[in-house]
Computed example of a mutant assay.
Amino acid sequence: MAAEIISLPQFRFDDRPTLAPGVAAVIERAIIEGTLPDGLKLTEEIICRKTGVSRSPIREALRILERDGLVVREPRRGVRVSKLTVENLDELYACRIVLEVLASELAAVNATVQEMDGIRRTHQRCERLLRTDHMLGHFRANVELSQRIFNAAHNLPLLGLLNSIHKQALRYRFLAYQMSRSARANSVRNNTELVAALAKRDAALAGVKVRQSIELSHEVIRACLMERTKRDGRRIKSG
Rank of each mutant, 00 (worst) to 15 (best):
L161S: 11
K237V: 15
Q10H: 15
Q168T: 00
M116T: 15
L170E: 08
A183V: 03
E193M: 12
R181P: 04
G22E: 00
A24E: 02
S54M: 13
A183L: 08
S54A: 14
E219R: 08
H218N: 07
H154A: 03
E105D: 04
A185L: 03
Y172S: 04
V208G: 04
A107F: 04
Y172C: 05
Q124C: 11
L89S: 11
R171W: 10
P157W: 01
C95K: 14
L40F: 00
V98L: 10
E215Y: 05
L40K: 08
R184Q: 02
R228E: 09
A30D: 04
E4D: 14
F11Y: 12
A183D: 00
A25E: 14
I31C: 09
L175G: 00
S213G: 10
A153H: 02
T192E: 00
E115S: 08
R189H: 10
N155W: 11
L89F: 02
L136M: 09
V195M: 00
G118E: 02
I119R: 00
R173V: 01
M179V: 08
R55E: 11
T122S: 14
A108M: 08
R181D: 00
A20D: 04
I46K: 09
M116Q: 03
E127D: 11
R63C: 08
V53G: 00
A153D: 02
E91S: 11
I149A: 03
T18M: 14
I32H: 13
F139L: 03
R228S: 11
A107H: 05
D15S: 14
Y93N: 06
Y177M: 00
A196G: 05
E127G: 11
R181V: 04
G22K: 00
Q147E: 10
Q212S: 13
N191Q: 10
E74R: 12
E227R: 11
R171N: 05
I31S: 04
M116F: 07
A141T: 06
G22W: 01
N155M: 07
V53I: 07
R67H: 12
R211M: 06
G233I: 05
V71G: 05
I64Y: 00
I46S: 02
K209W: 05
M179R: 15
A61Y: 03
A223F: 03
A176C: 07
G52E: 11
S104Q: 08
F13Y: 05
N155P: 07
N151F: 13
V220G: 04
H166R: 15
Q124V: 13
A141Y: 02
T112Y: 03
E105W: 12
R171L: 10
V98I: 15
R55S: 13
S104D: 07
G207P: 08
A152P: 05
E60Q: 10
T122R: 09
M226L: 12
R77I: 10
R67V: 09
K230A: 14
L216V: 07
A111E: 09
Y93Q: 06
V195N: 02
D117W: 15
V220R: 15
A25K: 15
N88T: 07
E4R: 14
C224H: 01
V195I: 04
H154T: 01
S238T: 06
V220Y: 15
A30I: 14
L8R: 12
D14K: 15
L158P: 01
A141W: 00
I119S: 01
L216F: 10
V113W: 09
T122Q: 13
G69R: 02
R189L: 09
E60S: 13
L84F: 06
